[in-house]
Amino acid sequence: MRVGLLPTDRGGSYRFVIVLLAILGILVSALPVVVVTIMSFSAAETSGFPPDSYSLRWYGEVARLFTNEDSSSAQSVVDSMVTSLVVALIVMVVATGVCIPLAYALARGQRRVREGMELLFTLPLVFPLVMLGIAFLLIAESLALELGIWRIVIPHIALVLPFVLRNCLSAMNGISVELEEAAISLGASPMRAIWDVVIPLMKAGILAGLIFALIISFNEFTITFFMYTIDVSTLPIWMYSRTVSSLDPSTLALSVFIIAADVLLIVLVDKLIAGKGNLF
């Protein structure tokens, strides 16, 4: 907190400006969460903000959705949820599994190669997501293969790769070659040296990458919207189809659970890597 270090006698206005900006920032980023949470406790049938009265009826509705057979949509919320989780887990494992050796190779390789590759892997970030979705749809259709869940997994991997790679690369940056050489001089094979020295020191970056991949994939909507089929659909798609005609407050109750799970995950990892690196 640098606020406390700012001049307060005559330059007090700086502090005022910074506090104002901070409040504004917090409001903008936290407002959706606050609104969704409040609305989820509404007792009204329709979704007006603020609600007239409060109840837990929509949470009951969520529970009912999960326990009862649901005939109103093609895929039940449970199926979508399971698909979302499976997709997110595969994406997380594959993306991280690719990025650890990739980050190692780029960090130890030639500088020019590294810069070029980093640019290449950053492309999905600057590409409009709608275009990315269309592109993946065209590719999937032209392949004429039954891809199953991989229809969604593969685009998600492309999407999360830059985030995971960036985390792994910045973790690699602080690990000098001499550390590996020290392990090797003590009798470790090069692979063993990586396993014993590089991987443990990359741990914070790897964990951050894992979490990023999981959350981004689980919440991804735009590309998935192009790729989902009747058989393979994710939770965000289910929520969208549920709310597209009229806002169904039970999805809001469901969102509160998702938000809570995400926050829990981030806090957990932050604790795990405490002092050893930053998640963001």
């Binding site: 001499e178 001089s185 090069p190």
Partner: peptide
């Protein structure tokens, strides 16, 4: 291979394993 030589080395940066 260097890991089979059994030479002890002290590096300029010392390269102690920080973890």
């Amino acid at each position: 291979a260097p890991h089979k030589r059994g030479f002890g080395m002290v590096f300029q940066s010392l390269a102690l394993f920080p973890h």
